[in-house]
Nucleic acid binder design. Structure first.
Lengths: 142, 142
DNA sequence: ACGGTACTAATAATCGTTCTCATTTTGTGA
DNA sequence: TCACAAAATGAGAACGATTATTAGTACCGT
């Protein structure tokens, strides 16, 4: 069974908060897990002709739920919010191709350590950070 | 005379593009230069009781103009767009205090070099980047 | 089956920003 | 200096993304 871990995480969160496991939530979770870096709009179109029609508001609500459960994380690329599956992943940042929109994940501990060092010199304590590199991916460099 | 360089830069841009020097543009530029990291709303409230009332649309238009002139740069902190004076400054990034909203600028070449190195391993060419550290500033750490 | 709680879709509302438009201001060249 | 075209203005409508409201529906334990 694919995605069992994510489903378990969601159910755990739902039970802990006296929320319910619904068909819509499972459907949205499934669609989310099949696609990295989706927006609410994309999921909405993707599920457009699903048997019981799923409203846009429900998708937004469920995506927020996934964030609360620790399954997803929001990323603000451009004007829309993208959601990223973070289960089984350590912290990572992104490169975004401004030509084709491709999103490449990467992680680099050295950068993180330098961030801590810089913050320390200003007496600043980091809780989270956001690092995005914009440019051209290998394919678009022509 | 304060801010002469910025004013010259704006006038130069206006002339080059057959645009006009207006009272509103000078007033907005002045208010912008007095305050680092402002939003359009903040400027609007700041100029609320100015002799000739300045509309919000004009502020947005002028801020975009400042960006085009190379005087300002947009930063998307939270839901609103902040504008940052970049004249006489090299590239820099920001720490944002999630408690009091303070914004601290910093620059670090080592981080930039590491970014280039990481990008290179993915065949990616960086044109711009965004690095934001969120956390608590020295004062709020209590 | 009952009452209660949480869910849903649809739609209205909100927020930040941009557009439209009728009017005013600016720069230019006679 | 004057007139005129081009550009800028303020007010408010419009916009896209997201959230709140509402009225009705499904599920749970009793």
């Amino acid at each position: 069974m694919k995605h069992a871990k994510e489903l378990a995480k969601l159910q755990d969160h739902l039970v802990k908060h006296h929320l319910k496991v619904t068909k819509q939530r499972e459907v949205i979770l499934d669609a989310f897990l099949r696609n990295e870096h989706v927006t609410a709009e994309q999921l909405y179109r993707m599920l457009g002709r699903h048997k019981p029609h799923i409203g846009l508001a429900t998708i937004y609500r469920t995506l927020n739920l996934l964030c609360d459960s620790g399954i997803a994380q929001e990323r603000h690329f451009g004007s829309q919010t993208h959601y990223d599956n973070v289960v089984n992943k350590r912290h990572h940042d992104h490169m975004i191709c401004t030509q084709c929109g491709a999103i490449i994940e990467f992680e680099n501990c050295d950068i993180e350590h330098l961030q801590e060092a810089v913050a320390a010199t200003h007496g600043f304590t980091i809780t989270t950070h956001k690092l995005e590199l914009y440019g051209l991916c290998r394919q678009c460099k022509n």
